[in-house]
C-alpha cells in the first residue's frame, strides 16, 4: 500500500489540503494506526455474522406530517442566516460561495 498516495487521494475526497510534509507525517501515523487496526483481519471469518451498525436495534422514529413555518430573526431575516459570515457570507438572503463551474 502506497500510504502517501492514499493520503493524498483521501485528503482530496475529504477536501483537506496537506502539505508534502503533512502527507509524510500523516501517512506514517496512519500506517501505524492501520497496522494496529489490521488485527481485525485476524478475527476468524466463521465467527463473523451480521454487522452491528448501531447499538439500538429498534425501528426509526416517525414524525407526523405537520409543517411549521420557520421563524424570522429580530431583523426580519431567515433566522438561520445569523450563523453565516456577515462580512462576506451572504448575497441578499442567499449564501455566497465562489463561482461553481
Amino acid at each position: 500500500m502506497d500510504m502517501n498516495a492514499i493520503s493524498r487521494s483521501v485528503a482530496k475526497l475529504a477536501r483537506l489540503e496537506l502539505s508534502e510534509e503533512e502527507v509524510t507525517t500523516f501517512s506514517d501515523q496512519l500506517k501505524q494506526v492501520l497496522t494496529y487496526i489490521d488485527q481485525l483481519q485476524s478475527v476468524p471469518e466463521s465467527s463473523l455474522g451480521a454487522p452491528l451498525y448501531h447499538p439500538l436495534e429498534l425501528p426509526t422514529l416517525l414524525r407526523e406530517d405537520q409543517a411549521k413555518t420557520p421563524q424570522l430573526d429580530s431583523e426580519g431575516r431567515p433566522s438561520m442566516l445569523s450563523a453565516a459570515s456577515q462580512t462576506d457570507g451572504l448575497i441578499g438572503t442567499a449564501y455566497k460561495v465562489p463561482p461553481i463551474l
Partner: peptide, 19 residues
C-alpha cells in the same frame, strides 16, 4: 432565499433528522 429553512435542513452542527 433560505426563508424556508431550520437547523436541520441547513445542516447546523448538532441538528438531527426525523423521518
Amino acid at each position: 432565499p433560505n426563508l424556508n429553512t431550520c437547523p436541520v435542513c441547513t445542516g447546523q452542527p448538532g441538528a438531527l433528522p426525523v423521518l
